[in-house]
Write a protein that binds this DNA or RNA. Sequence first.
DNA 1: AGCGTCCACAGCCGATCGTTATCACACCAC
DNA 2: GTGGTGTGATAACGATCGGCTGTGGACGCT
Lengths: 312, 312
Amino acid sequence: MRDLRYFLAVAEELNFTRAAERMFVSQPALSKQIRRLEELLRVRLFDRDRRTVVLTAPGRALLPRARELVRVWDEARRAVGEAAAAEAAVLTVGVSSSVGRGLLPAARARFAERRPHWRIRVRQVDWEDPTAGLAGGGEADLALVWLPVPGQEDLSVRVVATEPRWVALPAGHRLAGRAEVAFSELLDEPFLALPESAGPLRDYWLALEERAGHPVRIGSVVSNADETFEAVEEGSGVVLLAAGNAAIYRRPGVVTLPVGGLSPSRLALAWRPDDHRPAVRDFIDAFLDAAAGPARDGLTQDGRTGDGQAGS
Amino acid sequence: MRDLRYFLAVAEELNFTRAAERMFVSQPALSKQIRRLEELLRVRLFDRDRRTVVLTAPGRALLPRARELVRVWDEARRAVGEAAAAEAAVLTVGVSSSVGRGLLPAARARFAERRPHWRIRVRQVDWEDPTAGLAGGGEADLALVWLPVPGQEDLSVRVVATEPRWVALPAGHRLAGRAEVAFSELLDEPFLALPESAGPLRDYWLALEERAGHPVRIGSVVSNADETFEAVEEGSGVVLLAAGNAAIYRRPGVVTLPVGGLSPSRLALAWRPDDHRPAVRDFIDAFLDAAAGPARDGLTQDGRTGDGQAGS
DNA sequence: AGCGTCCACAGCCGATCGTTATCACACCAC
DNA sequence: GTGGTGTGATAACGATCGGCTGTGGACGCT
């Protein structure tokens, strides 16, 4: 199975070194495994003539089957996990940062009315996976994510709140005393960035769109909230964040303030469109009810009426 | 992949010890691997309550996917092998014993007329696999087999020759001087048998049908021609064989003679019905032409006109 | 009570799979 | 040419894996 993923990586990159990076292993390890796979099949899968790598005929024959195998395997893992969850009566909600706001407890309560014997487990997921464990082999049944989420076409998504974007600065920063800043004043600051794997979400929190081509300086790459605020505190850079998170992650050495001239961030509940388990549907309803319920501390709400995009 | 096969074996047997035997590993090894798979999936796949083994809900969810994965993997191996063979312009013919008779060289010649740049490779396969490498992950593209071949419904089969069955006896045997024996005289002899995995073919060469319930004594299990004749020579038992093989495998210490009262053995060319490669079709035509060609040393011939059964 | 069956556990060993360090070669810039 | 860069192969080594044998304990059956 692993070898098949390696094979796919090399077949897609046509470059051992880059494929190895993508699979998070060293290049010799990947070379060796490919060689082993070739020995197992008694066939050369790639022609490596010094400078270029191309698939051989047997390699081309393997390619679609390997994809199929990886797909079925991932699906099997998911199905097994779901079967276990159904037996244990547990739903797992992946979250990227403490984005629950008041929503999670409220949703929990409403869900408990309908399914008293079910439990909700909340799992923090690092920002390497912007779908918070929902995509691929992740173990989340639902996720609270920031839009835009990569691979959005394969997910059902419903916006549950919008919040203006703020900025976090080290306490000694030249702008730290201000009550508000315009984004144009931050253009030349070093920014903390999400990992590459976060794709469009990384661009979003760098506000690439609002820079209109003005280049961005990456001060550091961060993959969870703790890393982020430590990096801000030690002056590696500044970072945009949702207004709600500015309140939650308040800490000495870091100052947060509103930023003018940026579109608001959108928080969404996401799930797998092909996941028709009743408990999941009930939780979605419970959550959206909660989001549409009594107003909470200044959040602009979307709830059921928002511009939520139901995935395919 | 291996672990999936183990899982399938246990799921089908619902018994670790028997499953381990089926997979040709020790029972602790299989237990450990199942446990590892369970750890990987973070789920219990079987409920073992001391005396009985049953699938859990996650196990039931995995079962069909595991079958699918094994199926696609086997298919992928076959496809890769075929792609390599097409490039190398080689066809592999599996044979169980030297059953080629005059047929193989004749077929080779006719095939060479149509596909001069292709080569034919003949591969001897032990009798553990009565399809001579055609079924499962075997590497034969075609096979010369004795009927009945297990799993015949998944193969295309064409009878190319029928031969009376003879018996091989040690030189000192009480019947060794005879010109011919009746099968009824052999009923109480110890017989050499094919491995269990040969299924109906094992029964066929023990002539179970013609024994009409008379019990058979197994002198020894043999899985290739050399083993067989050595076992005969040292007196482990007697063995039935096709008339043609009696001539080919003549050796001091072993006597062969015709047996009356047995149906004749049928030699068949077999291939995979879903294998539509032109070279394979050409070889089938060449072989059947050769089998229908000039008569050779006393063999009853079937060729194209025989009662060949075209598989599904 | 004693035996057989069946699964789990422990201890051992060779093969596998990962690492880092280094080499060999092709290409490119100069 | 010459040296730098990028790429894949190779070497040496350590941790883990996957198999083995031997053993133990629970249960059913005589």
